[in-house]
Nucleic acid binder design. Structure first.
Length: 572
RNA sequence: UCGGGGAUGGUGUAAUUGGCAACACAACUGGUUCUGGUCCAGUCAUUGGGGGUUCAAGUCCUCCUCCCCGAACCA
């Protein structure tokens, strides 16, 4: 069973009987027909040769949800049949990411655990005349496989006697044959229209160190010869994989049919993998971005990897809900990244506490602000709600005095049409503070404002005027004498195009060189120095920001708030 | 070229399995608001194309078009 102690279940995740899909329909039919005498079991079978991304999240959510909805279990199995590329560090990272996503596998298994059983079964197939050792090179075998609409031809070694095959196969296992000198092939049908059935390779020789089985094996099973068998051994009922394995299904079934298994065999069903606009989700492409230094690492917040999204502040629950919402189908599709972002905003709007931060500071001086008995400007403490969406989050006191920081964007010497913020002569509200009117601005020679002077209306403490007059805008601020300095990383999409590489064939051509902007000298309200690592808060009027897990005073922009003003400007 | 799969608004997913094309995102109008946020109201598709069956077709039949996957000792 899954354990979601860290992340509570949302209604849509708890299973919406109104909504179904073709996979769930299959499962309930099997349940109705009593197809399996064992309980429903699914599995998530990553190869430990890379990090999990949002596409994997869809598969994880699907597999765990289907198990949970039907009172079954979901296991994690590392498909580690290729010693050349796999590593323990990926295993650890994958386990960690799944846990963060909110799931606990019923068990953690490895295809390599089944190497002995697989070997035994292979000998059995050889004895039955269903597999043979082929001494040809990879090129020759590929050549003989034929092509689309072109039948293959049989290997000259195809009719070797079982006894000879057995001897050779044992020699392969014992390391007497060098890498590449021969393989074990299933004897199926070289004329079959499905290329997967043209005597597929079951074992190849690899004189390599395997991260788990060490040096005990010289031969390694291929994906097809390991996958369905692992499913069967574990008791999986529904083996869900992505569309490109459709043709492998026949082979999956062929292998299972040859083995002495008890009970109904698992069966494979394919679904479309998740794609998102403005990003890439292929292992090769992601690896390229990291290895070539286009991003800082596998957890660079611009990447769609789970560790990157986590670092960026995406709540696991938002990812789960997104995955559940997009559903499963067999149609190749690409979802708007905006949909994911909207799930993130919805969740964060509910849960993130509000704080004030000025990213590009401009000094604002209240010229009629009173001094105290020592001749220093009075410091008041204004009370602000931590989250207007959730009153249980309470309030906090924020210092307010004569000298403040406001956002450069919130002041214009000459306001364009529909600009509601501060400019000479206009009155705005300082959120939770007072109404202020701009009297003048001091500018440099180029005309850039250096300091804005305002007067405040003492009768508007808290932000509302007793005479009922309205202001067009409320802006945020940070008291200058109490401000905490910090930095912020602003992320844009990594790629400029919806489908990276669509026109040139290479996603790298569509990389946006300005996808990361780091701002130093940001001014944070005091309480922000107490934010826990990785916690996400809303900087009012700006967006959601996640505190870095290590660097104190550094925030990552998770996602901006929807911005009507930016939209208006873009329309022009 | 052969085999497998797919096609419903700008995007994605639905449609009681032959009965008023729904939901979300995006976009656009307007309203509310001490966040140009949130929230609320409204607008936005006759289902890839042709033919057929039927009182009735997104759903069934038929022809066509387009797209994706498959010829690793990768998974």
């Amino acid at each position: 069973m899954t354990d979601l102690t860290q992340n509570s279940l949302t209604p849509s995740e708890a299973g919406d009987p109104e909504r179904s899909d073709f996979v769930r329909e299959l499962v309930s039919e099997d349940l109705d027909n009593g197809r399996f005498s064992r309980g429903i079991q699914t599995r998530f079978p990553p190869e430990p040769n890379g990090y999990l991304h949002i596409g994997h999240a869809k598969a994880i959510v699907l597999n765990f949800s289907i198990a949970r909805e039907n009172g079954g279990v979901c296991v994690l199995r590392f498909d580690d049949t290729n010693p050349a590329t796999e590593d323990q560090r990926y295993v650890d990272a994958i386990v960690e990411d799944i846990e963060w996503l909110g799931y606990t596998p019923n068990s953690i298994n490895y295809s390599s655990d089944y190497f002995p059983q697989l070997y035994e079964w292979a000998e059995m197939l050889i004895s039955k005349g269903l597999a043979y050792v082929d001494d040809q090179s990879a090129e020759e075998i590929a050549e003989q496989r034929g092509g689309f609409g072109r039948p293959g031809i049989e290997s000259p070694y195809r009719d070797r006697k079982p006894g000879e095959n057995l001897k050779l196969f044992r020699e392969m296992k014992d390391g007497v044959h060098p890498e590449g000198s021969c393989v074990l092939r299933a004897k199926i049908d070289m004329q079959h229209e499905n290329m997967q059935l043209r005597d597929p390779v079951m074992y190849r020789i690899r004189d390599q160190h395997h991260y788990r089985t060490r040096d005990t094996w010289k031969i390694y099973p291929s994906y097809d010869w390991a996958h369905g068998q692992g499913d069967a051994l574990e008791g999986v009922t529904h083996s869900l994989c992505s569309l490109e394995f459709s043709d492998n299904r026949a082979l999956y079934e062929w292998y299972l049919r040859q083995l002495p298994l008890e009970g109904e065999a698992p069966y494979q069903t394919e679904f479309a993998r998740l794609e998102l606009t403005y990003t890439v989700t292929s292992k090769r492409r992601l690896k390229e971005l990291v290895d070539d230094g286009h991003v800082a690492g596998w957890d660079d917040p611009r990447l769609p990897t789970l560790r990157a999204l986590r670092r960026r502040g995406y709540p696991a629950s938002a990812i789960r809900e997104f995955c559940a919402f997009v559903g499963v189908s067999r149609t190749n599709s690409r979802h708007d990244i905006e949909l994911l972002e909207s799930f993130v905003r919805t969740e964060l709007n509910r849960t993130a506490q509000r704080r004030m931060a000025v990213l590009r500071p401009l000094k604002l001086v209240i010229t009629n602000w009173p001094d105290d008995e020592n001749g220093k400007p009075v410091v008041e403490h204004r009370t602000l709600a931590n989250n207007p969406e959730n009153h249980d989050d309470g309030t906090r006191k924020v210092p307010f005095s004569r000298d403040l920081w406001i956002e450069q964007d919130d002041f214009r010497m000459e306001p364009p049409p529909k600009y509601f913020r501060l400019s000479p002569g206009t009155e705005v509200r300082l959120r939770g503070g007072y109404l202020v009117t701009c009297t003048e601005a001091i500018c440099d020679e180029a005309g850039n404002p250096l300091e804005v002077h305002c007067t405040y209306d003492p009768a508007t403490a808290g932000g509302s005027a007793p005479d009922g007059r309205k202001v067009k805008s409320t802006i945020h601020w940070v008291d200058a004498s109490n401000a905490v300095d910090g930095s912020v990383a602003l992320y844009e999409r990594l790629f400029k195009e919806k489908v990276p590489g669509e026109t040139t064939g290479d996603p790298l051509d569509d990389l946006d060189p300005n996808s990361l902007e780091i701002l130093q000298g940001c001014k944070f309200e005091q309480s922000l120095s107490g934010v826990a690592p990785s916690e996400v808060v809303q900087f009012e009027r700006l967006g959601y920001f996640a505190a870095d897990s290590e660097a104190h005073g550094h925030f990552h922009r998770t996602v901006g708030l929807r911005d009507e003003w930016a939209r208006l400007q873009k329309q022009k």
